[in-house]
Simulated assay, not measured.
Amino acid sequence: MSLIDAARAVRENAHAPYSNFKVGAALKAASGAIYTGCNVENVAYPEGTCAEAGAIAAMIAGGDTQITEIAVIADSPKPVSPCGGCRQKIAEFAGQDVTVILATTDGITHETTVGALLPGSFDADYMSRT
């Protein structure tokens, strides 16, 4: 199953009763395992969870720590991009050259990289004074 197919399948499980904007994400870890996540809204905005964050949490729970590719899909007129917070979360576990596939449910795709989505990301290098 491709990452887009995995993201498409998990998107159906999204809990989006307020926005009706279901999002699915699937990522491949360095181990080869595929992890998925969908958005989960909450009536007490902004307490929901993005699909990308859910997939990353599943990856960490599964014992993996490195993203080698990620895909995000939504029913939108153009390929949906991760929000700013999720871009930073993805950058925590993926190199700048990691492929990001953005897709619509109608089959439109756009391929980019983590670095293109989040230039100048905040990383661990800022945390040390060596």
Rank of each mutant, 00 (worst) to 15 (best):
S2L: 00
S2N: 14
L3F: 10
L3I: 06
L3W: 05
L3H: 01
I4E: 04
I4W: 12
I4F: 15
D5V: 03
D5N: 10
A6C: 08
A7D: 03
R8T: 14
R11V: 02
E12K: 11
E12A: 14
N13L: 13
H15T: 12
A16W: 00
P17S: 08
P17Q: 03
Y18A: 00
N20S: 00
N20Y: 00
F21R: 01
F21W: 04
G24C: 05
A26S: 12
K28A: 14
K28E: 14
A30K: 12
A30F: 05
S31E: 08
G32T: 11
I34G: 04
I34K: 01
Y35D: 04
T36R: 01
T36K: 08
T36I: 07
G37V: 04
N39W: 07
V40A: 12
E41M: 10
N42G: 03
N42Q: 10
V43K: 13
A44I: 12
A44H: 12
Y45H: 05
P46Q: 01
P46F: 00
E47T: 07
A51S: 15
A51H: 10
A51I: 06
E52K: 04
A53Q: 12
G54K: 02
A55D: 09
A55N: 12
A57P: 04
A57N: 12
A58C: 06
A58P: 02
M59N: 09
M59R: 08
I60K: 13
I60E: 05
I60W: 00
A61Y: 02
A61Q: 12
G62K: 15
G62W: 13
G63E: 14
G63S: 12
G63P: 03
T65L: 08
I67P: 01
T68F: 09
E69S: 11
E69Q: 14
E69T: 05
I70G: 06
A71P: 12
I73F: 08
S76M: 08
P77A: 04
P79E: 08
V80I: 15
V80A: 08
S81E: 11
P82A: 15
P82Y: 15
C83Q: 10
G84P: 01
G85K: 14
G85D: 06
C86H: 05
Q88K: 13
I90C: 08
E92V: 11
F93I: 07
A94Q: 09
G95A: 15
D97Y: 09
D97A: 15
D97R: 09
V98A: 09
T99V: 15
V100E: 03
I101K: 09
L102V: 06
A103G: 08
A103T: 08
T104K: 03
T109K: 06
T109E: 14
T109L: 06
T112L: 13
T113M: 04
T113I: 06
T113L: 07
V114M: 13
V114N: 11
A116V: 09
L117F: 03
L118T: 08
P119I: 00
S121F: 10
S121H: 13
F122W: 07
F122N: 05
F122S: 10
D123Y: 04
D123F: 09
D123M: 13
D123S: 14
D125P: 00
Y126T: 02
S128T: 11
R129F: 05
R129C: 00
T130G: 07
